[in-house]
Nucleic acid binder design. Structure first.
Lengths: 166, 166
DNA sequence: TGTTCATATTTAGATATTCTAACTATTAGC
DNA sequence: GCTAATAGTTAGAATATCTAAATATGAACA
């Protein structure tokens, strides 16, 4: 296997993706919430309310970590916990109105900052980036784990611009 | 301004980049060092030895944070601090042989894992991703800050596959 | 029905990360 | 040599993260 150049592409592309991601975050650090908190807010904005375990899985942390971060966000009034009537062991975590406002603002600032850089590329370069987006969405769908599947906003909506991510 | 579609592209592309980045990290969490530590190791692998302040700038954290993380990595034997003879206030931070081995291993695992996903795309999709890489490299160069410029490995080497990033 | 195992989450305790403010040491300008 | 700027560390506090253990609910079944 691997006569298709995937390994070579991975070695070139993965570092680039990492650096662009880091650059975006460095240029728009965000205000008064920590990195972990803003990541949770963005995940909830993007995927809608999640159970505690789903949130932990998406964030790539253990459940006690999710519990801890959510507890602080609740104290800040940015998210709320509601019991799941179907399964009373479970907890649904969702944004409050104030949480939505705050994370929308950060997301908009990051989009604007990134757009400024994109505007300095040539139209051809922007076209190439645009053309690569469906392949990226396909990559994401390949990773889809039934355990942390998106609910209302499924992966295809990532291309609609309706979702905002950290 | 912004009649070139940069804002719309940003709104679509930035979330995708974020999700691909998070997916890669979630699929290869790394062993015994923390996220902050592996990020520093990868930065040093990619950019070569850095001064403490440069390292903090690249990582997007304050200097005391860099000091703290480096101190732990020194204790683990993965990085070393050397005095700069030119400027005796400054400290150079670089990988030890053992540090290089460890971060090479993690980088290779992430590359292989990502390559497995890429291998499930069509050849056309891989071609589109490949074609978008120069534009990404250009984006990175636009962000170049003289304060945190790469030394031996400049940004163009990101396309050579010689560097490995978190 | 009640016992037992599995699942979802929290609590407890430890280590790591991160910040701001204040401190030390060195360099640069005059 | 003063004085100010620069590079880094130390101190102290809040947050984030982990593993192990506890709690509570759900599911299976004799």
């Amino acid at each position: 296997m691997n006569t298709d150049g995937s390994m070579e592409l991975s070695r070139q592309l993965r570092p680039l993706l990492t650096r662009v991601y880091q650059m975006v975050r460095r240029r728009s650090p965000g205000w008064d919430v920590t990195a972990a908190q803003s990541s949770v807010l963005t995940t909830l904005l993007d995927r809608g309310p999640l159970r505690m375990g789903e949130l932990a899985a998406v964030e790539g942390v253990r459940m006690p970590t999710a519990t801890s971060v959510v507890a602080r966000l609740v104290k800040l009034g940015l998210v709320e916990r509601t019991a799941d009537p179907q399964d009373r062991r479970a907890v649904q975590v969702g944004l409050t109105a104030q949480g939505r406002i705050q994370i929308d603002a950060l997301s908009a600032e990051r989009n604007a900052n990134f757009a400024e850089l994109l505007g300095r590329l040539s139209a051809e370069e922007r076209g190439l980036l645009q053309a690569a987006m469906p392949a990226m969405a396909h990559l994401l769908s390949l990773d889809a784990d039934p355990n942390l599947a998106a609910s209302e906003n499924d992966l295809s909506t990532a291309l609609e611009g309706a979702s905002n991510h950290e």
